[in-house]
Write a protein that binds this DNA or RNA. Structure first.
Length: 461
RNA sequence: GGUGGGUUGGCCGAGAGGCGAGGCAACGGACUGCAAAUCCGUGUACACGGGUUCAAAUCCCGUACCCACCUCCA
C-alpha cells in the first residue's frame, strides 16, 4: 500500500485514489523566464519518480504539469533583452525541455501553458465574482482580486490565520479591500506590450499567477483530483491561493499535497535572483545526466539537499558500479522488483532505502554464479527510478554508438594483441606503455579472465 | 511577529528507552605482473548543557544553530 506525506494534514497517509486504479496528478512546472538549474530539475525528477512508481503499481496515471509562460518577470526580462516576451518564454521552454530530456524525465500526459487557457480562467473568475468571492478593483485598474475575507477557510493548507499574515509588500493596496487579497486578473498597463494582453469583461489584461493552475487542473483533471505537487516554496502563497479560489468556485480540488524540498549551494537556495544557480548544462559537463539523476534520486524528496560536487562525484561513482554489473550480466529483460524495494517506495517514496536495495541486489548478483536473475531485478528497479542505462529515452550522446564501437574494436585489436604478447613474455613495461597509450585516447583497458576489455573512460570531463 | 521543517559517522539515511539498521564513498585484505573489476573486512555517529532511568540518539527541562515560507521563486 502506497503511503504519501500530505502537506495539508502533515502526516503520512494511505494513498486512496478517487477512482480505483486511476491517479490524477497536477504538478506546478516552471515559469519559463530563465535557464533551468539543478533545483528546478529536482522537482521534475522527484515527481517523475512518483509517476513511474504509480504506473509500475498499475495505476492509470494522468499527469499534468503546467508551464507559466507569462508573468511580471518574463515581461521585464524580455523588455530588458529587447525581444518579445513570447520569444523569451519559448526559448526558455525549449531549454527546460532539453534539461528534462537529459535527465530522462518522462513527458507528462499534457503540459498546458497559461496563455493557452485564458478563456478557462475568465470563466473561473466570473464564477468567483458571481459567488461573491472576487471583485474588480475599484480604482479602475482593470485588476480583479480574490476576496480573502470572504473565504473563511483561507489559510487551510498552510494552517495560517489571515490576521497573522503579512500583507503583500509589492502590490499597491489601492484597489484592494484587504491587503492580502491577491490578483486573479491583472489589467493591462500602458507600459506593457499589446501582445501581452487579452480581452476580458474587465478590459484588456493578463492572468494573475495562481488562477492558471486552478483553471488548468480543473480542465484536465476535473473538479477533484488526487495529487497536487510542487516545490515547498509554492505552499504559500501559490497553493494556498489555488485551494481558496478553486474551492470558492465550487471545485473540490486535490486530495493530497506533495512538496519537494530544496537544493541549496553554500547554504543558500538556488534562485534566479540570487544568481547562484547551478545550470544544468554546466553540471552536465562534469557528470552524465544519468549520474545527476541518480544523485537526485538517492536523496529523499522531502529532504533538503546541500549540493556539492564531491557528493555528486561519489554518487556517480556508485552508480557506475551498478552499470558495470549490468554490462557484465549482459542483456537481461527487466523482471520483478524485490519486495524490500517496493516496501521502500511505498513508504512515501523512500528512495534512499530503495537505492540500498538496489546495491544489495547488485552485490548478490556479483557473488552468485548466475547474475541473470539479479540483473533482471536491478533493471526493474532502475526502470522505476528512471535510471535504466539501456532506456532509449536517454539522449544519444550518452550512449556508445554501436557502429563506432566496432570501429574502435578494429582499431584497438592490433594494440591489444601486442600488449597480450608483451604480457605473455612478461614484458610488463611494454604492456603498460600500450595501456597508457590507449588510456591517453580516453579508453580504459581492463584484463579479465576472458581477455582484455575496453570501455570509454568516464572519469574525465 | 506568524507558520512550518531540521541538526544521526565524508555523503544519503533508518531507528522513537536496552542487544552498534542499511547503502554509497573512504581505508585495509584477498585476487591481479601491476591495475581495473569483484568479493571480504573496518566506523561505537546521534547539535549542546542539565535531568529522569539499572539503561537515553530515543523521555523531561533548557540552550544553540541551520533552513524555508509570509504574495518573483522548484
Amino acid at each position: 500500500m502506497l503511503r504519501l506525506y500530505d502537506t495539508q494534514t502533515r502526516e503520512v497517509r494511505d494513498f486512496v485514489p478517487l477512482v480505483e486504479g486511476k491517479a490524477g496528478l497536477y504538478v506546478c512546472g516552471l515559469t519559463v523566464q530563465s535557464e533551468p538549474h539543478v533545483g528546478h530539475v529536482r522537482s521534475a525528477v522527484n515527481f517523475d519518480v512518483l509517476q513511474r512508481w504509480l504506473r509500475h503499481e498499475g495505476y492509470d496515471v494522468s499527469f499534468i504539469r503546467n508551464t507559466t509562460d507569462i508573468d511580471d518577470k518574463i515581461l521585464a526580462k524580455a523588455e530588458e533583452q529587447g525581444r518579445p516576451w513570447y520569444n523569451l518564454a519559448y526559448d526558455m521552454k525549449r531549454e527546460l525541455d532539453r534539461a528534462y530530456a537529459s535527465l530522462n524525465v518522462m513527458p507528462p500526459t499534457y503540459e498546458p501553458a497559461a496563455t493557452g487557457h485564458v478563456p478557462e480562467m475568465l470563466e473561473l473568475i466570473t464564477r468567483l465574482i458571481e459567488a461573491g468571492h472576487a471583485y474588480p478593483a475599484e480604482d479602475g485598474s482593470g485588476d480583479v482580486y480574490f476576496d480573502v475575507q470572504s473565504w473563511p477557510a483561507y489559510g487551510e493548507l498552510t494552517h495560517q490565520r489571515i490576521d497573522d499574515m503579512e500583507a503583500a509588500g509589492d502590490a499597491d493596496p489601492r484597489g484592494k479591500r484587504d491587503p492580502r487579497d491577491f490578483a486573479l486578473w491583472k489589467g493591462k498597463k500602458a507600459s506593457e506590450p499589446e501582445t501581452a494582453s487579452w480581452p476580458s469583461p474587465w478590459g484588456r489584461g493578463r492572468p494573475g499567477w495562481h488562477i492558471e493552475c486552478s483553471a488548468m487542473a480543473g480542465k484536465y483533471l476535473g473538479s477533484a483530483f488526487d495529487i497536487h505537487g510542487g516545490g515547498v516554496d509554492l505552499r504559500f502563497p501559490h497553493h494556498e491561493n489555488e485551494v481558496a479560489q478553486s474551492r470558492a468556485a465550487g471545485q473540490r480540488f486535490a486530495s493530497y499535497w506533495m512538496h519537494n524540498a530544496w537544493i541549496t549551494t553554500a547554504g543558500e537556495k538556488m534562485s534566479k535572483s540570487l544568481g547562484n544557480s547551478l545550470l544544468i548544462p554546466e553540471v552536465l559537463k562534469r557528470v552524465r545526466g544519468i549520474e545527476l539523476r541518480f544523485y537526485l534520486v538517492a536523496a529523499h524528496y522531502r529532504s533538503h539537499v546541500e549540493f556539492s560536487f564531491e557528493a555528486l562525484d561519489e554518487a556517480a561513482q556508485g552508480f557506475r558500479r551498478i552499470e558495470g554489473f549490468l554490462e557484465r550480466a549482459g542483456e537481461e529483460e527487466a523482471g520483478e522488483v524485490p519486495q524490500a524495494f517496493a516496501d521502500a517506495m511505498d513508504d512515501d517514496l523512500g528512495t534512499p532505502a530503495a537505492v540500498a536495495v538496489l546495491f544489495d541486489t547488485v552485490r548478490e548478483g556479483n557473488r552468485s554464479g548466475d547474475p541473470a536473475p539479479y540483473a533482471a531485478q536491478v533493471r526493474a528497479m532502475l526502470d522505476v527510478l528512471g535510471l535504466d542505462p539501456a532506456d532509449p529515452a536517454w539522449p544519444d550522446a550518452q550512449k556508445t554508438d554501436a557502429g563506432l564501437s566496432d570501429v574502435v574494436d578494429a582499431l584497438l585489436s592490433g594494440l591489444l594483441a601486442q600488449r597480450s604478447e608483451a604480457r605473455a613474455a612478461k614484458d610488463f613495461a611494454t604492456a603498460d606503455a600500450i595501456r597508457d597509450q590507449i588510456a591517453a585516447a580516453g579508453i580504459e583497458v581492463e584484463d579479465t579472465p576472458d581477455g582484455p576489455v575496453w570501455s570509454l573512460s568516464q572519469k574525465d570531463a
